[in-house]
Computed example of a mutant assay.
Amino acid sequence: MTNGEHSPKEWSEKGLLAEIRKLHQQGRSLAFILGAGASASSGILTGGKLAYDWLQEWHQRECLEPDTDLQSWAREQLENPTFSTHQDAKPAYQDAASHYSTIFERRFAGDYTSGYAALEDAMEDAAPSVGYSILAKILDETHHRVVVSTNFDNLVADALAIHARRQPLIVGHEALAGFARPQLRRPLVAKIHRDLHLAPKNDREGVNTLGQGWGNSLSQLFQYSTPLVLGYGGNDGSLMGFLNDLPAGHIPGRLFWCYRDEPPAQNVLATIAKHSGVIVKISGFDEFM
């Protein structure tokens, strides 16, 4: 990747692991930022795949012209003339990921309870993968105790219940954000889009707006812990907006952003560069952990 003002450097996976080892030896703390990609190997569909399924259901229900194909109809409904559902080099669901909240809103308009039930069904049989098991041991046995997640699932808590000695503090609603403090004695899981059973945020306003109280808590957390991003694409406006607004130099060290298939979008790269960050291609969450 070309390195410039708005393009962070790219490191190797081995190089990142070596750096993490040194930071650990120096007593520096990491905060794991998890997105839907981290839960895929645990049996939960990614946001893009869920959005693509909902898009097809929305199309089937509201497209009154039987000869209109999904792509043409979606381009009009989403007001995106380049939206694609059949890309040669990319998964069919990839473009749907960036329209997740809009698709959720339109698919479940008038009945968000049905949408929450759909999410519960999608996560009902999920079990922590080996990556979450290793993460649980790290959270329990080291000074790296913080998880900030855009996910609704309970995989971190489930893994800690199996492998850890101490129960975590789960902050699953912005009303409790004040309890998400740095330097806690037990693992902390901050679920900024809420818990699965607490009206999780899926609509555009919810996904793009950071709940009141989270800004101050996250600011404090990232003063003490260096973010390590895993499985998060930066498609929301809440956490991504917070990271973008955070002053340069606020984060200790640099921001580490891992990706699996495609590099982050240009606006995300600019935010990473702002925080002296690096991007790292990994083979997957489980493999990296």
Rank of each mutant, 00 (worst) to 15 (best):
M1H: 13
T2N: 13
T2L: 14
N3Q: 13
K9C: 06
S12R: 15
S12T: 15
K14C: 05
L17T: 10
G27S: 09
L30M: 09
L30W: 05
A31V: 05
G35P: 11
G35A: 04
G35S: 08
G37V: 05
A38C: 08
S39T: 05
A40M: 12
S41W: 06
S42W: 07
G43L: 02
L45N: 13
L45Q: 13
G47C: 01
K49L: 09
Q60P: 00
R61K: 15
E62Y: 13
E62K: 09
C63Y: 02
R75N: 06
L78A: 01
E79L: 11
F83Q: 04
A89S: 10
P91E: 09
P91I: 11
A92P: 10
Y93I: 00
Y93F: 14
D95P: 10
S98F: 11
R107D: 00
F108V: 00
T113H: 12
S114P: 00
Y116C: 08
L119W: 01
D121H: 11
L139I: 06
H143G: 07
H144V: 00
H144G: 04
V146P: 00
V146F: 03
V148M: 09
F152M: 08
N154Q: 13
A159R: 06
I162W: 11
I162N: 10
I162A: 14
R165T: 14
H173K: 08
L176G: 00
L176A: 15
A177E: 05
A180K: 06
H193V: 05
H193E: 07
H193M: 08
A199C: 11
K201I: 03
K201M: 11
R204F: 00
G206A: 03
N208H: 14
T209Q: 12
L210M: 07
L210E: 08
Q212H: 09
W214T: 03
N216T: 14
N216A: 12
S217F: 02
Q220P: 04
Q223S: 15
Y232F: 14
G233L: 04
G234R: 07
N235L: 01
G241W: 07
L243S: 03
P247C: 04
G249S: 06
P252C: 09
R254Y: 06
F256L: 13
F256K: 01
C258W: 04
E262M: 13
A265T: 10
L269D: 03
A270E: 14
K274N: 04
S276R: 15
G284Q: 07
F285N: 07
D286H: 05
E287I: 12
